[in-house]
Each structure stands twice: as structure tokens, then as C-alpha cells.
Design a protein around this nucleic acid. Sequence first.
DNA 1: CAATTGACGTAGT
DNA 2: CACTACGCCAATT
Length: 100
Amino acid sequence: MNFKNKVHGIVERIPKGKVSTYGQVARLAGNPKAARAVGAVMKNNPDSKRIPCHRVVSSKGEMTGYTAEGGVKTKKEKLLLEGVVFNGDIVELSRSQISG
DNA sequence: CAATTGACGTAGT
DNA sequence: CACTACGCCAATT
């Protein structure tokens, strides 16, 4: 099982209306320090229909990257539609992060 | 194969 | 809280 393959399964597990962090995914993937690598895997994003990469944010709840359509702008909109709680331009991890 | 890059995270000031 | 510095991993060139 490759790292990216693990990440795929984990990101798929992210429920609607909730978000996870790169560090969280990296940790579940088995590499607590591979947060950065998670971003690389997201960028690869082989199945955008199956992998809700937009539900992954930074440890502070700030949205970064999202090379897909619209960029971070659409990313915020999507999370907002899903019911994710926002605090200005930052996600309330205390209320929307998994296991929180 | 070696060097560089990048959707990150933590610690110190 | 804002900024700087360092470490880490995987993908790309």
C-alpha cells in the first residue's frame, strides 16, 4: 500500500459537513510528518469525483492551494454549501474538524 | 539518479 | 497574533 493510496482512502472517509487537516490525514496515513506530501497527493488528485480534496485544509483551518477550478475561492464556497462552519475566511476546526 | 519544488507543521522571537 | 527559521515527505524536472 503506497502512501498516496492510503491518503486516497482516508480523504474519501471525510464525511460531508466536516473537514480534515493535512496533518490529520498524514497521521492516519501512517506518516505524521508527511502533511506536505498529502498536499502533493491532493494535487495529483486522480479522482476528483471520489476524493473530496476540498474537505482538506491546513492545521489552522486556513485554505491553501486547490489548483482545481475556481481555486481557494470555490473551495470555500463548496465547504460552505456542505455546511462547514466558517469564521471569516477560516474554518472552525473546533466545530468542523473530524474527531473534534 | 540528483536537485528542486510545494495544497504543511512546529518552535522561537 | 505576526513573522522567521527549520524539518519532513512525495512528486516533478
